[in-house]
Every structure is written in structure tokens, then in C-alpha cells.
């Protein structure tokens, strides 16, 4: 991956001036490249990584394994696209193994998610079974440990 993209993935708020210094590139070029990435859809957007456990939100997340009967034309795609349009489906992947689709579904409470599964998801023609797991605690998200660990203090001057 392009160095600029790597750096933005790490910190999307980094100033163009600093990026330019680190990449040894003119600032204008950095800005132009970012714009190009945005326009061509390589960069889809920017968001903050929030530790929701800290916020006392009324919100639950479920991971749902879904088995689907593939169709002669298009395999899993038609049903997958249909499911992915639900607002509460935050992430979704086609998987190898004992089930087909893996969904990350968010809702205000257990009941709402359960009713999404039983009323919306399970009733779709072609969906043959679902298995729902509720998340209890986040340890790591987007490569970041959520529970800050005490830093081991280093000496201030060493040879």
C-alpha cells in the first residue's frame, strides 16, 4: 500500500504539512493525491475510533452467522446485497467454512436485534439458518487495544 495511505489509515487527521515532511513530497502534491484518493473512492471516508464501552450507551452488537442457499445466477450476491442494505448491518463478509455470511449487527438492545434476526433476516428466502452471538466486551478494535495499559516508564536519557 502507498505510504501516504498507510499514514492516513493510522491518523486521518495528520496535517498535510507534516505528511509532506515525512514523505519528502511537496505539500500540494500530498493534498492533490488525497483528493484523488477521495474522488476515485480509494478513500471511502473518515471516522473516529470510539471506545463505546466507555460511553454507557444503550447499544448491543451481535455477530451473526448466516447460511444461505446460493442461486444459479450470481451465487450469494443477490441475497448478500439485500441483507447488507439494512441499516443495522454494520459489517458483512462472505466466508469460507461452515456458514456463508458473517454479519455485525448493531441495535439499541437485545430485543431489537433478536427481532431483526427473526423477522427480517431469517425470513428472507434462501436464508436457511442463522446463529447469533452477542458481544460482551471489546478488547481490541481496528488494531487498537481498548483498555489502555500503563506505560512502562523509560529512562529520560540513555547513551
Amino acid at each position: 500500500m502507498d505510504e501516504l495511505l498507510k499514514m492516513l489509515k493510522e491518523n486521518a487527521l495528520e496535517k498535510a504539512e507534516n505528511l509532506a515532511k515525512m514523505l519528502d513530497m511537496p505539500v500540494d502534491e500530498v493534498r492533490a493525491k488525497i483528493r484523488e484518493y477521495e474522488e476515485t473512492g480509494v478513500i471511502r471516508g473518515y471516522h473516529a475510533i470510539v471506545d463505546e464501552d466507555k460511553l454507557d450507551l444503550d447499544r448491543v452488537t451481535a455477530v451473526i452467522e448466516v447460511k444461505v442457499t446460493p442461486e444459479r445466477d450470481g451465487g450469494f450476491d443477490r441475497i448478500a446485497k439485500r441483507i447488507s442494505k439494512f441499516e443495522s448491518v454494520k459489517d458483512m463478509y462472505l466466508m469460507s467454512g461452515t456458514y456463508d455470511l458473517l454479519l455485525f449487527v448493531a441495535g439499541p438492545n437485545l430485543k431489537e436485534v433478536a427481532s431483526f434476526v427473526s423477522e427480517k433476516l431469517a425470513t428472507i428466502e434462501g436464508v436457511t439458518s442463522t446463529s447469533t452471538h452477542f458481544m460482551l466486551k471489546t478488547y481490541k478494535h481496528h488494531g487498537l487495544l481498548m483498555e489502555a495499559q500503563d506505560e512502562y516508564e523509560r529512562l529520560k536519557v540513555t547513551p
Binding site: R154, L155, K156, V157, T158, P159
Partner: peptide, 8 residues
């Protein structure tokens, strides 16, 4: 202090 004196 911000230390740039650390050789590690």
C-alpha cells in the same frame, strides 16, 4: 520533559 535523548 519531551526527551529526544534516549538511545533506545
Amino acid at each position: 520533559v519531551i526527551s529526544l535523548s534516549i538511545g533506545e
